[in-house]
Simulated scan of single mutants.
Amino acid sequence: MEALMELEKVQRVLSFMSSRGLSDAGGGGAAADRFLAQFILFLVQPCDSLSMEKKLLLVSELLRKASPDTLEEVKHLATLEDDQDLSSQSLLQPNKKCKMHEEKLTIQASPVVGFDAITRANSTLEDFVVERNKQAFDETSLSQMIDPLDDLLQCQGLMTDRLRTELKLGIQYWSLERKLCQALARNEKISIEDVMRAIHLKSFDYRVLNLLMYQLTSQQINDLHMDFLSVSELLVEISDDL
Protein backbone atom coordinates (compact mmCIF):
# COMPACT_ATOMS: atom_id res chain seq x y z
CA MET A 1 0.00 0.00 0.00
CA GLU A 2 2.89 2.34 0.76
CA ALA A 3 4.30 1.77 -2.72
CA LEU A 4 0.90 2.53 -4.23
CA MET A 5 0.78 5.82 -2.32
CA GLU A 6 4.24 6.71 -3.64
CA LEU A 7 3.06 6.09 -7.19
CA GLU A 8 0.07 8.34 -6.54
CA LYS A 9 2.41 11.11 -5.36
CA VAL A 10 4.49 10.82 -8.51
CA GLN A 11 1.37 10.96 -10.67
CA ARG A 12 0.14 14.10 -8.89
CA VAL A 13 3.50 15.79 -9.42
CA LEU A 14 3.49 14.76 -13.10
CA SER A 15 0.08 16.41 -13.51
CA PHE A 16 1.33 19.51 -11.70
CA MET A 17 4.41 19.69 -13.94
CA SER A 18 2.27 19.43 -17.05
CA SER A 19 -0.04 22.24 -15.90
CA ARG A 20 2.91 24.52 -15.06
CA GLY A 21 4.96 23.82 -18.16
CA LEU A 22 7.66 22.03 -16.17
CA SER A 23 7.65 18.83 -18.20
CA ASP A 24 10.72 17.85 -20.20
CA ALA A 25 10.91 19.62 -23.55
CA GLY A 26 14.00 17.80 -24.78
CA GLY A 27 12.29 14.71 -26.11
CA GLY A 28 13.05 12.52 -23.11
CA GLY A 29 9.45 11.39 -22.91
CA ALA A 30 7.77 9.75 -19.93
CA ALA A 31 11.04 8.55 -18.41
CA ALA A 32 12.42 12.10 -18.27
CA ASP A 33 9.23 13.48 -16.73
CA ARG A 34 9.19 10.70 -14.17
CA PHE A 35 12.79 11.45 -13.21
CA LEU A 36 11.99 15.14 -12.78
CA ALA A 37 8.89 14.35 -10.71
CA GLN A 38 10.86 12.11 -8.36
CA PHE A 39 13.60 14.73 -8.12
CA ILE A 40 11.07 17.42 -7.17
CA LEU A 41 9.59 15.12 -4.52
CA PHE A 42 13.09 14.58 -3.17
CA LEU A 43 13.73 18.33 -2.98
CA VAL A 44 10.60 19.04 -0.95
CA GLN A 45 11.46 16.43 1.68
CA PRO A 46 12.50 18.02 5.02
CA CYS A 47 16.25 18.02 5.59
CA ASP A 48 17.28 19.48 8.94
CA SER A 49 16.89 23.26 8.76
CA LEU A 50 17.48 23.68 5.03
CA SER A 51 14.94 25.95 3.38
CA MET A 52 13.57 25.44 -0.13
CA GLU A 53 15.67 28.38 -1.35
CA LYS A 54 18.83 26.89 0.15
CA LYS A 55 18.13 23.50 -1.42
CA LEU A 56 17.69 25.06 -4.87
CA LEU A 57 20.90 27.05 -4.41
CA LEU A 58 22.83 23.92 -3.42
CA VAL A 59 21.51 21.96 -6.38
CA SER A 60 22.25 24.83 -8.77
CA GLU A 61 25.84 25.07 -7.54
CA LEU A 62 26.28 21.30 -7.74
CA LEU A 63 25.00 21.12 -11.32
CA ARG A 64 27.49 23.78 -12.40
CA LYS A 65 30.36 21.69 -11.03
CA ALA A 66 29.16 18.19 -11.88
CA SER A 67 29.40 16.46 -15.25
CA PRO A 68 28.19 13.16 -16.75
CA ASP A 69 31.60 11.72 -15.88
CA THR A 70 31.06 12.73 -12.25
CA LEU A 71 27.76 10.87 -12.17
CA GLU A 72 29.34 7.80 -13.74
CA GLU A 73 32.01 7.79 -11.02
CA VAL A 74 29.37 8.06 -8.29
CA LYS A 75 27.34 5.30 -9.92
CA HIS A 76 30.41 3.08 -9.99
CA LEU A 77 31.13 3.74 -6.31
CA ALA A 78 27.52 3.07 -5.34
CA THR A 79 27.23 -0.20 -7.25
CA LEU A 80 30.71 -1.61 -6.67
CA GLU A 81 29.76 -3.39 -3.44
CA ASP A 82 26.55 -4.81 -4.93
CA ASP A 83 28.44 -6.13 -7.95
CA GLN A 84 30.93 -7.86 -5.68
CA ASP A 85 28.11 -9.50 -3.72
CA LEU A 86 26.43 -10.77 -6.88
CA SER A 87 29.64 -12.14 -8.34
CA SER A 88 30.44 -13.98 -5.12
CA GLN A 89 27.14 -15.82 -5.33
CA SER A 90 27.91 -17.06 -8.85
CA LEU A 91 24.31 -16.63 -9.95
CA LEU A 92 23.17 -17.00 -13.53
CA GLN A 93 26.53 -17.41 -15.24
CA PRO A 94 25.84 -17.34 -19.00
CA ASN A 95 28.77 -19.47 -20.10
CA LYS A 96 27.28 -22.03 -22.49
CA LYS A 97 27.70 -21.67 -26.23
CA CYS A 98 24.83 -21.61 -28.67
CA LYS A 99 24.80 -22.88 -32.22
CA MET A 100 22.40 -22.92 -35.14
CA HIS A 101 21.56 -26.28 -36.75
CA GLU A 102 19.09 -26.65 -39.59
CA GLU A 103 17.70 -23.21 -38.78
CA LYS A 104 16.69 -24.34 -35.28
CA LEU A 105 18.28 -22.97 -32.13
CA THR A 106 19.82 -25.51 -29.78
CA ILE A 107 22.02 -25.22 -26.72
CA GLN A 108 24.99 -27.53 -26.46
CA ALA A 109 25.12 -30.15 -23.71
CA SER A 110 22.04 -28.91 -21.90
CA PRO A 111 18.33 -29.84 -22.08
CA VAL A 112 16.16 -26.80 -22.69
CA VAL A 113 12.59 -25.73 -23.06
CA GLY A 114 12.11 -24.55 -26.63
CA PHE A 115 11.35 -20.92 -27.34
CA ASP A 116 8.20 -21.88 -29.23
CA ALA A 117 7.04 -23.90 -26.23
CA ILE A 118 7.44 -20.87 -24.00
CA THR A 119 5.34 -18.70 -26.27
CA ARG A 120 2.60 -21.34 -26.45
CA ALA A 121 2.51 -22.28 -22.79
CA ASN A 122 -0.18 -21.08 -20.41
CA SER A 123 1.85 -21.70 -17.27
CA THR A 124 4.55 -19.56 -15.70
CA LEU A 125 8.33 -19.70 -15.87
CA GLU A 126 8.29 -21.37 -12.49
CA ASP A 127 6.49 -24.37 -14.01
CA PHE A 128 9.19 -24.79 -16.66
CA VAL A 129 12.03 -24.79 -14.17
CA VAL A 130 10.69 -26.35 -11.00
CA GLU A 131 9.01 -29.28 -12.74
CA ARG A 132 12.39 -30.45 -14.00
CA ASN A 133 13.36 -31.50 -10.52
CA LYS A 134 11.30 -31.79 -7.34
CA GLN A 135 14.25 -32.13 -4.97
CA ALA A 136 15.53 -29.43 -2.63
CA PHE A 137 18.04 -27.01 -4.17
CA ASP A 138 20.36 -24.31 -3.01
CA GLU A 139 20.76 -21.06 -4.95
CA THR A 140 23.74 -22.37 -6.92
CA SER A 141 21.89 -25.42 -8.25
CA LEU A 142 18.83 -23.29 -8.99
CA SER A 143 20.97 -20.88 -10.99
CA GLN A 144 22.31 -23.81 -13.01
CA MET A 145 18.74 -24.78 -13.86
CA ILE A 146 18.11 -21.24 -15.15
CA ASP A 147 21.26 -21.24 -17.29
CA PRO A 148 19.59 -22.85 -20.36
CA LEU A 149 16.87 -20.19 -20.32
CA ASP A 150 19.50 -17.48 -19.93
CA ASP A 151 21.44 -18.86 -22.90
CA LEU A 152 18.31 -19.18 -25.01
CA LEU A 153 17.23 -15.60 -24.39
CA GLN A 154 20.73 -14.36 -25.19
CA CYS A 155 20.78 -16.24 -28.47
CA GLN A 156 17.39 -14.76 -29.35
CA GLY A 157 18.68 -11.27 -28.56
CA LEU A 158 16.11 -10.85 -25.78
CA MET A 159 18.29 -10.90 -22.66
CA THR A 160 18.83 -7.59 -20.86
CA ASP A 161 20.45 -6.65 -17.56
CA ARG A 162 17.04 -5.93 -16.09
CA LEU A 163 15.67 -9.28 -17.21
CA ARG A 164 18.66 -11.09 -15.75
CA THR A 165 18.14 -9.24 -12.46
CA GLU A 166 14.53 -10.46 -12.30
CA LEU A 167 15.70 -14.03 -12.88
CA LYS A 168 18.15 -13.65 -10.01
CA LEU A 169 15.30 -12.44 -7.82
CA GLY A 170 13.40 -15.57 -8.84
CA ILE A 171 16.26 -17.72 -7.60
CA GLN A 172 16.19 -15.84 -4.32
CA TYR A 173 12.45 -16.47 -4.06
CA TRP A 174 12.72 -20.22 -4.68
CA SER A 175 15.51 -20.51 -2.11
CA LEU A 176 13.59 -18.44 0.44
CA GLU A 177 10.38 -20.39 -0.16
CA ARG A 178 12.13 -23.68 0.60
CA LYS A 179 13.67 -22.17 3.72
CA LEU A 180 10.26 -21.08 5.01
CA CYS A 181 8.56 -24.38 4.13
CA GLN A 182 11.26 -26.40 5.84
CA ALA A 183 10.98 -24.22 8.95
CA LEU A 184 7.20 -24.69 9.07
CA ALA A 185 7.56 -28.45 8.61
CA ARG A 186 9.88 -28.56 11.61
CA ASN A 187 7.67 -26.25 13.70
CA GLU A 188 10.50 -23.73 13.79
CA LYS A 189 10.01 -20.00 14.18
CA ILE A 190 10.01 -18.06 10.92
CA SER A 191 10.94 -14.44 10.33
CA ILE A 192 8.24 -11.97 9.29
CA GLU A 193 10.93 -10.22 7.24
CA ASP A 194 11.49 -13.44 5.27
CA VAL A 195 7.75 -13.81 4.71
CA MET A 196 7.38 -10.24 3.42
CA ARG A 197 10.45 -10.63 1.23
CA ALA A 198 9.02 -13.83 -0.26
CA ILE A 199 5.69 -12.13 -1.01
CA HIS A 200 7.46 -9.28 -2.80
CA LEU A 201 9.59 -11.69 -4.84
CA LYS A 202 6.89 -14.24 -5.67
CA SER A 203 5.56 -12.57 -8.83
CA PHE A 204 9.00 -12.33 -10.44
CA ASP A 205 7.84 -14.62 -13.26
CA TYR A 206 5.16 -12.15 -14.32
CA ARG A 207 7.72 -9.35 -14.32
CA VAL A 208 9.97 -11.50 -16.50
CA LEU A 209 7.12 -12.07 -18.96
CA ASN A 210 6.26 -8.36 -18.99
CA LEU A 211 9.87 -7.46 -19.74
CA LEU A 212 9.93 -10.07 -22.50
CA MET A 213 6.82 -8.53 -24.04
CA TYR A 214 8.57 -5.16 -24.15
CA GLN A 215 11.55 -6.79 -25.86
CA LEU A 216 9.45 -8.78 -28.34
CA THR A 217 7.47 -5.68 -29.34
CA SER A 218 10.60 -3.46 -29.45
CA GLN A 219 9.04 -0.98 -27.04
CA GLN A 220 10.81 1.08 -24.41
CA ILE A 221 10.03 -0.11 -20.89
CA ASN A 222 7.49 2.08 -19.12
CA ASP A 223 8.78 2.20 -15.54
CA LEU A 224 5.54 3.68 -14.22
CA HIS A 225 3.65 0.76 -15.76
CA MET A 226 6.07 -1.76 -14.23
CA ASP A 227 5.84 -0.11 -10.80
CA PHE A 228 2.05 -0.18 -10.95
CA LEU A 229 2.08 -3.86 -11.90
CA SER A 230 4.50 -4.60 -9.06
CA VAL A 231 2.12 -3.09 -6.51
CA SER A 232 -0.83 -4.85 -8.12
CA GLU A 233 1.01 -8.19 -8.01
CA LEU A 234 1.75 -7.71 -4.31
CA LEU A 235 -1.92 -7.05 -3.53
CA VAL A 236 -2.95 -10.11 -5.56
CA GLU A 237 -0.46 -12.33 -3.73
CA ILE A 238 -1.74 -11.13 -0.35
CA SER A 239 -5.34 -11.62 -1.47
CA ASP A 240 -4.62 -15.16 -2.66
CA ASP A 241 -3.23 -16.07 0.76
CA LEU A 242 -6.15 -14.68 2.75
Rank of each mutant, 00 (worst) to 15 (best):
H76P: 06
H76L: 09
L77H: 08
L77R: 13
A78F: 12
A78M: 12
T79E: 06
T79D: 05
T79L: 06
L80Y: 09
D82Y: 14
L86E: 05
S87L: 14
Q89W: 07
S90R: 12
L92N: 00
Q93T: 11
K96C: 05
C98F: 04
M100H: 07
M100C: 10
E102F: 07
K104F: 01
K104L: 06
K104I: 04
T106S: 14
I107T: 02
I107R: 00
S110V: 11
V112H: 03
V113H: 07
G114M: 13
F115H: 03
D116T: 12
D116P: 02
R120G: 06
A121I: 06
A121L: 04
N122R: 15
N122I: 10
N122A: 15
T124W: 02
T124F: 03
L125M: 15
E126D: 12
F128G: 00
R132P: 04
N133D: 12
K134M: 08
K134R: 12
Q135M: 14
F137S: 04
E139G: 08
T140I: 08
S141M: 09
L142R: 03
L142V: 03
S143Y: 00
S143H: 03
S143A: 10
M145Q: 08
D150L: 09
L152C: 05
Q154H: 11
Q154T: 12
L158R: 00
M159L: 11
D161F: 03
D161E: 09
R164N: 05
Q172N: 12
Y173R: 03
W174A: 01
S175Q: 04
E177H: 06
K179L: 06
K179A: 04
L180I: 05
C181D: 13
